[in-house]
Design a protein around this nucleic acid. Structure first.
Lengths: 258, 258
DNA sequence: CAGTGGTCTAGACCACTTC
DNA sequence: AAGTGGTCTAGACCACTGA
């Protein structure tokens, strides 16, 4: 039981850390259905004996499984397999500029509308104040090369982001600007399909009533809404990709050079 | 430095575990922009001194931040703030039946088509074999009350799921059946808007060319594709909701009673 | 009230990477 | 070659909770 640097790898496979091995084995039993929902997972001290390791090691594994939603831990009772959850996919919703650049297309944007006003009643509710709040309303067209890529309609809470008042957004689009100005803390997305309104069709140079993918995002910090944005993409130009991988692996360090 | 049960909570707040406090403080510095992308995070031994705790504690916190994608860890160099990522939202994609029930509507489904055939060339590629594989092709209409809710077009790899061969899917829809038969391991979703084809329009009782939300999901296990499904929702009836919360908090155990 | 998980420690060895 | 993170240990105390 002395501490080891690498792998108790018994057979063929590449060196696997002990905690990875434990994680994978338990995960497999759950995902394969061998351990159905509700089934109790071995206690920590049982796993300690089984894998001949310290409690910290198995504890970290079980904690991870719990965070991933695969098991539920209850004091004094034990850990249990949760019933199959909805498939939780991780949706990467990039900044529009990033999105266009990633396609290798030249990006630019133009501000179609920009006006300061007071929020309407309904918006006031959204922005968490009973009364009205000053907001900045912006319409922005994102271009990929010469083709319209996305029409953005945005409302910014000027109480939350007073710096926006004098910002023209000519250099950086509202999304890009806000992303670096007010780092996101909490967001909710609604994704749907809708027929293009005459305004959308005109801006995006598509036929009226053709299909668009609408992504609406409300960004909040604490209890106050920072901004609301509606992004309209021509249906044939865009799709969201959401990938889903169980857990495991995930050393989680894709990029380079900070 | 003796071990404590609860909280070094200094001021007002509710008792906070040390690792939570460390996590929140670092996270705040990053999200607020105070520590910009590329900035080095204090070394583990520095944080140990700062918080007067053991290395394991700070290590777990940094590991968590790395898994969450907020920082990047590099041996010998240190840990660094990553540049703002795409907003990663967690998309819960439920079983269609669950979805309808959740709306308080009576659910039922009907199989419109069901035929066994060999995969086409293109599909063969999808299914990971060079040659063709036997597949089951199914069309299924999901109803919410008396209204069509979703049209499902599905292809099941019979090499991977031979049990499907003799399944009628009358009792359980293909999605529901598969979910319990072949627990998901890896999935990729593509979400887009499209105009209804004549077939879709007829089945869903909507006008041709009206907007639909299309969710396509490819489910794989190892390197073999289990099933491919295309779900078409009338655009005005459905929207996906993806929520995003940074990290922290997350003891992660919502439900009850296994 | 006994046993579970939740947290934390003060060490240790190792591998990798940059210097 | 030095220093970082990555893993692991063999303990500990505590809080919660189900029996």
């Amino acid at each position: 039981m002395k501490t080891k640097g690498r792998a108790p790898a018994p057979g063929r496979q590449e060196p696997l850390f002990l905690h990875q091995r434990i994680l994978v084995e338990i995960q497999d039993k759950i995902l394969s259905g061998q351990w159905p929902a509700g089934r109790r997972i071995p206690f920590e001290h049982e796993l300690m004996k089984q894998y001949q390791c310290s409690r910290m090691t198995v504890s970290k594994v079980l904690t991870r499984l719990a965070q991933a939603g695969l098991i539920e831990r209850r004091r004094k009772a034990g850990s249990f397999v949760r019933r199959p959850q909805s498939q939780s996919a991780v949706l990467d919703i990039p900044d529009v500029k990033t999105e266009v650049i990633a396609r290798g297309l030249p990006y630019h944007h133009q501000i179609l509308k920009r006006r300061k006003r007071r929020s309407s009643r309904a918006e006031g509710e959204l922005f968490g104040k009973d009364g009205v709040v000053p907001v900045l309303e912006i319409e922005c067209l994102h271009m990929a090369g010469k083709r319209p890529f996305c029409l953005e309609h945005r409302v910014i809470n000027l109480l939350a982001v007073p710096e926006a008042t004098n910002e023209s957004f000519e250099e950086h689009s509202p999304g890009t600007w806000l992303l670096r100005q007010v780092p996101w803390t909490l967001a909710e997305h609604h994704i749907r399909a809708a027929a293009a309104t005459p305004e959308m069709a005109a801006a995006l140079q598509i036929k009226a009533r053709s299909s668009c993918l609408i992504v609406e995002r409300t960004t909040r910090s604490m209890d106050v809404t920072i901004t609301f944005v509606r992004l309209a993409y021509p249906g044939d130009m865009h799709q969201l990709v959401a990938s889903f991988t169980p857990i495991a692996a995930v050393p989680g360090a894709p990029p380079r050079r900070p």
